[in-house]
Amino acid sequence: MTTYPTTWRRPPQIFTHRGWRIGLQLAALIYLVFAIGTLEVSWARIAEGGERGMRFLMGFLSPDFSSRWRDISQGLIESLTMTLTSTVVGVAISIPIGIGAARNVAPAWIYAICRSIIAISRALQEIIVAIFFVAMFGFGPFAGFLTLSFATIGFISKLLAEDIEDIDEAQAEAIRATGASWAQLINYAIQPQVMPRLIGLSLYRLDINFRESAVIGIVGAGGIGATLNTAIDRYEYDSAGAILLMIIALVMVAEYSSSYLRKFLQ
């Protein structure tokens, strides 16, 4: 009669070497200690903050929409106009760039140019772009519009290019075989396949642009973000709470309606 082992340890899953495992855990621990150690926390300031935090929380729970309504409504209209115009313009510019950035339809040099445009647009953050546009074009929604359009180009072109690269080659071949020109190829083989996706992506970007429009106002690019910044600077937490609640509500509405529209259009 055989006897069976009475002990069993779960074999390590990722780092099978014992030294590595312990070294890694130790390194993580040391990092944590150091990272937390370099935090300079002023407890006095935080204690003071507790009271402010409560006031903000109260502001959030009893938001004040009325006393700053003019500023809020203006900021909202600016944000919404920025969002829509930048999405439309951004998508319109993205289409040629996206086609140019698809390896299967564009010549190599155009591909290189379009991909660099996409890379630049994606690497630069909205906020940083906004800072520059504000410096160049002055305060106000126009700088915000440019920022969001610029960011939209990177986002839509990249996804559009990937879609075009993923299309069914058989269909493209069939159209090519009829002796179609390049424009006809795009029109007959590519467009029907990527159009629904493009509309979906544009709606999605509309939603993102609204969220972003609330942020870039902080550096002077207009919109609800600027209003919020002012409210917080003035310690008007009840107005700030009202603005935040409106942002949350609008984002929710935008998200639901954009996903509904996407479903409807598909």
Binding site: T2, Y4, P5, T6, T7, W8, R9, P11
Partner: peptide, 26 residues
């Protein structure tokens, strides 16, 4: 913590052997 009583582990090994999977335990 995967620290089962020794009797449980022994039983598990015996069953794995019974169904012919002793070498596949891990």
């Amino acid at each position: 913590t995967r620290r089962f009583p020794p009797a449980d582990i022994q039983r598990a090994y015996r069953l794995l052997d019974r169904v012919g999977l002793m070498t596949h335990a891990d």
